[in-house]
């Protein structure tokens, strides 16, 4: 079973040019793999802005509200106790823990949200069928096009990738699924 096609490019600049051509050719289920984030690649691939920021903002504000609720409920309702003459509802004193929980919830949601949007952890993926792909975390630059893409064809996509400068173009074949 064919899962996709993988092509290698020489450097980040070639990868970016190739990404533009793949985008312009009408593919949308493809990805550009590089050992570090390449600037301008989002535009070259035609990706929309990540929505992660909204998720983080939601959880960070939720964290702050929980902090406020926890403290005011504790001191005003659950256990009202006057200590060194401070008022029971001393909102000024609550700011620090509100801030701490704002940051805590924001940070946890940033990491979990990133993993969610990236569909990670995922230990198995067609690109790992390629021995050559091991270079993607070292000094290799790759484009992979998935067979699920509506424009995908074993032969045409392969020759297309070769025509835009791809080396070591290979079919990603695996026998599972």
């Amino acid at each position: 079973m064919i899962h996709g096609i993988l092509a290698e490019f020489r450097n980040p600049l070639d990868l970016m040019h190739a990404a533009e051509k793949v985008r312009d050719a009408g593919y949308n289920k493809f990805d550009c793999h590089s050992p570090f984030p390449v600037h301008g690649m989002d535009q070259a691939m035609g990706l929309k802005r990540s929505k992660l920021g909204f998720v983080i903002a939601f959880f960070a504000i939720l964290g702050g509200l929980i902090g406020f609720a926890l403290q005011s409920w504790t001191h005003s309702i659950a256990y009202p106790l006057t200590i060194s003459g401070k008022p029971l509802f001393a909102w000024q004193a609550y700011i620090i823990i509100i801030f701490a929980l704002f940051v805590l919830f924001g940070a946890i949601s940033a990491v979990l949200g990133m993993l969610h949007f990236n569909r990670l952890p995922r230990f198995h993926h067609p690109v790992f069928y390629s021995e050559n792909f091991k270079k993607a975390t070292d000094d290799g630059f790759f484009i992979s096009i998935e067979s699920e893409d509506s424009k995908f064809s074993d032969t045409e996509t392969k020759s297309f990738l070769e025509s835009i400068g791809g080396d070591n173009v290979e079919l990603l074949e695996g026998d599972d699924e």
Binding site: M41, I56, V111, G113, R122, H125
Partner: peptide, 28 residues
Amino acid sequence: SLGWRGGNRQWQHYELAYLVLAGLSTPL
């Protein structure tokens, strides 16, 4: 490594998450 593939679709969210973590850590 959670099956990291270094695809730009991953880097996109990754870089934003990293930026936000930096932004949250600074006042922290």
